[in-house]
Structures are given as structure tokens and as C-alpha cells.
Design a protein around this nucleic acid. Structure first.
Lengths: 199, 199
DNA sequence: CCTTCAGGTTAACGAGCGCTAACCCCCCTG
DNA sequence: CAGGGGGGTTAGCGCTCGTTAACCTGAAGG
């Protein structure tokens, strides 16, 4: 099943560099010439791979939202019938942390540049995000049945804020090690949920 | 002591509208003409009040960082000797939540547009932010003496992420009421800290 | 009553942007 | 060996942006 150990295609290079630049300086703050330069070609050469700058952002944001949602669905399915909802919640948290730690530019773009999208693309991203949130809300309310739905939704958004804070934790070197950071974030997320769920 | 029930000056109007627009569409996504239109004057009229667009952003960001820091210092001083560190931590959390709920555009700008500043201004903001974080870290480690400093700093940043998530909680109408939201955020913050401090 | 000045106006400039046009070159295939 | 297309190049267009210049106006002060 050729699990893509291949060299990255030019398209993928472009997307990766564009994500980094957009995250660093904002969508409007980056010119196509810079994106081109980052992959070794110059400016208008990008238009052989994308119809425009907007399309790069759209593909990035849809890709992120989709892969978060897909990952969560898979984790929910893998849990099966016997495992408790607490295990699923932990799995959700773990997946989100992996994403936040491994794809920091994408996590940044995800809640920062959404409004720069064309209407149709933005609707698509919003819908994927909403589904993702609903999965979390469902599992959270299984773990804490006393939790009302609006409170659960707010709690989920807040924990996303907590988990997505990794870009602010200093440059990748200053972190106390990936595993340690992941564990810290995980415990804080569970603690935050517990504080609002057990009452 | 004339607590400023006066009408807002033109400068203040401009800053407020600029903050809203920058938060909505990003610094580079807003033109000076739009900012002018938002306060009823047109484009270049702004230059009677500010030397340039950058200066507006700089004044906003420095103002935010300074008032967060000043507020925290005041709360620390007010606590006096007898009150425990837990009370101070609660006071910090409460102050930050007030800010996040009442000045949502500013909180958004605060961690989103910092890199658009001139070097000198950015350094100033960073220094204020660092001092603010250090106050939190100090109090947090008094509450949880077992907590190592790097972990404490990460925890503080993460809780900022949690508290600053309010802009994502839907438009001001859909929130379950300010007091309820504030209480929810407060409990989650304490829960997150507790989960990493008690061990 | 004349002056001054704060706080506006419109016109216009220069730079930078996203994007298109026109061209080129190499590699692959029949 | 012809030719065709994928993937580049540079030149340049049209637009928008931040900023400046030049001008105007109404109210306050001597």
C-alpha cells in the first residue's frame, strides 16, 4: 500500500512552505514571490500548480479540518463498544495534541485565517469544524452526563484554545521535550474538563 | 476624581474601531480608508491623530500588554501579606477573564498581530508580556511548590490559551450569559492548573 | 476683525501586490 | 527524429495600498 516514503512532490513542498509563511506573517503579509522563493522557483511559477494564492490557503484549511475530523472519527470507531467514553476522550485529546505539536503552522492558520477564504470554502471548513466539535461534545457528555450541552460546547472550545497554545510555548528548542509537553497538555485538558464536569 | 464619563475623544474612537477591524480581518487586511469610514472621517484624516497605520497597532498592543501587567501588579499588591497565594491566583484569573470578555478584539490582536510591529515596539510588548507571565509563574509556584519552573511557564501559557479562547465561543449573543461563562472559564483554569500542580 | 490652528477634505504619487502573457527548454513518447 | 506538454522563466498590467500635498473651514483669542 505504498505508504508514501517517496520524496514530497512540488505541490506538497509549496503547501508546506506556504503554511509556514502564512502562519508567520499572515495571509496578506506574504507575497507569492516569497512562497515561490521558499521552494526554489520564482513567483508566477506557482500558477502551474495552483490557480491562485487563495487556493493554497483553502487547500490548507480544508485539509486540516478534514484530517482532524477524519482522525476523530477513526478513533471513535476504533474504540469499539466495550471501551469506556473516558478512553475515547483521552484518545481525542492525544490526537489533537499530536496535531498541535507536529503541525504548528497549520494549527495556527486554522483559527487565524479562516475569514480570508472564499464563501464556499469557508462554509466547508466551518462545517468540518462543527462536526469535529460535535464529536467531542458527544463524548464529553458521555463522560460527564450532568454537563449541559452549551456548557460542554464552551468547554470543548476552551480546551482547544489550551491545546492550540503550543505555538506560543517558545520555539521548538525551548520545549522540555515533546513527550513531556504532550503529557502536560493532556493532564491540563483532562483537569479542565473535570473541573467543569464534576460538580 | 472624574472617572471619565466624558464622551470618548476622536483618538479613542479611532483606536477602538481599528482594534475591531484589525481583529476581524487582520492588520494587512484593513485599509486606512475603512478605519476612517468607521469613525465618520475619510482616509487620510487619520493622519491628524496618528503618524501612520503602524502607530495605531503599536499603541493598541502596548496598551493591552501594559494594562494586563498593571492590573496584575495591583492585584498582587492588594492581596497583602495575610491572604494566601490561592486567592491571588484566583484574582489573576478573574482579571484576565474580565479582559478577555470585555475587550475581545484586543485579546485577539494581542497574540495575532505582534509580528507586524516595528522592532522597538515589539520588544517593548514582549517585555511587558514576559513580566506578566512571570507574575503568574511566581504565584502559581507558591500555590503548587512542587511545580518546576519550565512546567509552570508552559502551564501559564496554556491557560492563557484557554482563557483567550472566548473569541471563538460564538458571537456575544450566543454565550450563556457573561457571569456563567466567566465562572466556567475560571473553574476550567483552576482545574487545568490543579491537574499539573497536584501530582 | 483679523489671525491662527485643529481637524477635516480631495487629488495624486509611488510602491507593491496578484496575476496573465509570452516565451523557453527539456524529456518523453510514437 | 518530430512534436508536445509539464514546468519553468521574465515582462508587464492593473489595482490597491499607505502616505503626502495642497487646500478648506469654523471656532477661539487678542
Amino acid at each position: 500500500m505504498a505508504t508514501r516514503t517517496d520524496a514530497p512532490t512540488r505541490r506538497e513542498q509549496i503547501l508546506k512552505e506556504a503554511a509556514r509563511l502564512f502562519a508567520e506573517r499572515g495571509f496578506h503579509g506574504v507575497g507569492v514571490d516569497e512562497i515561490g522563493a521558499a521552494v526554489g522557483i520564482s513567483g508566477p511559477g506557482l500558477y502551474r500548480h495552483f490557480p491562485g494564492k487563495d487556493a493554497m490557503l483553502a487547500e490548507l484549511l480544508i485539509g486540516i479540518s478534514d484530517s482532524l475530523l477524519t482522525g476523530a472519527k477513526r478513533r471513535l470507531a476504533e474504540a469499539g463498544e466495550e471501551t469506556g467514553p473516558g478512553v475515547v476522550l483521552d484518545s481525542f485529546i492525544e490526537g489533537h495534541i499530536d496535531f498541535a505539536l507536529d503541525d504548528r503552522p497549520l494549527i495556527t492558520l486554522h483559527d487565524r485565517e479562516l475569514d480570508r477564504l472564499r464563501d464556499a470554502d469557508r462554509k466547508m471548513v466551518r462545517q468540518l469544524q462543527r462536526q469535529y466539535v460535535e464529536l467531542w461534545v458527544g463524548v464529553l457528555r458521555e463522560v460527564y452526563p450532568a454537563l449541559a450541552e452549551p456548557a460542554a460546547r464552551s468547554a470543548v472550545h476552551s480546551v482547544f484554545g489550551l491545546l492550540n497554545s503550543t505555538p506560543h510555548l517558545g520555539r521548538p528548542g525551548s520545549l522540555p521535550g515533546r513527550a513531556v509537553t504532550a503529557s502536560l497538555l493532556h493532564r491540563m485538558a483532562r483537569g479542565a474538563f473535570a473541573a467543569v464536569g464534576e460538580e
